[in-house]
C-alpha cells in the first residue's frame, strides 16, 4: 500500500515541478508583461496544486491534509487577485501590448 502512495507522491510532485518550470520559462521568455502574467498565474498555481496533491498522502493526520488544501486555496486566491490587479495596472499605465508576431 505504501508503495502505491509513494508512487502517487513521486508522480504528482514531479508534475508540479514540471509546471513550475513551465511557469518560469514563460515568465522569462514571453514577449510582454501581460503574456508573462498569464504564464505566471496559471502555471505556478497548477504546480503548487499538484505538489499539494502529491504531498497529501504523506501526511500522518487527515486534518493536516486539509491544511495543505487551505494553503493551495490561499495560493490560488493570491495568484488570481494579483494577476487581475497587475493586469489592470499595466493596462491603465498604457504599457506596450504585444500584438502578435509582425
Amino acid at each position: 500500500m505504501t508503495a502505491a502512495l509513494d508512487a502517487i507522491t513521486v508522480v504528482f510532485v514531479l508534475a508540479g515541478c514540471f509546471f513550475f518550470l513551465a511557469g518560469n520559462v514563460g515568465l522569462l521568455r514571453f514577449p510582454d508583461t501581460l503574456t508573462r502574467l498569464h504564464a505566471l498565474t496559471k502555471a505556478d498555481n497548477l504546480g503548487l496544486g499538484l505538489v499539494v496533491i502529491g504531498l497529501m498522502p504523506r501526511m500522518d493526520h487527515p486534518l493536516s491534509a486539509l491544511k495543505l488544501l487551505l494553503v493551495w486555496a490561499l495560493g490560488m486566491l493570491a495568484a488570481a487577485t494579483v494577476g487581475q490587479l497587475i493586469a489592470r495596472s499595466v493596462l491603465r499605465r498604457g504599457l506596450p501590448i504585444w500584438k502578435g508576431p509582425q
Partner: peptide
C-alpha cells in the same frame, strides 16, 4: 513584482 510572486508561490 510578478517574479517576486512566482518566487513566493515557489
Amino acid at each position: 513584482m510578478m517574479a517576486a510572486q512566482l518566487l513566493s508561490s515557489g
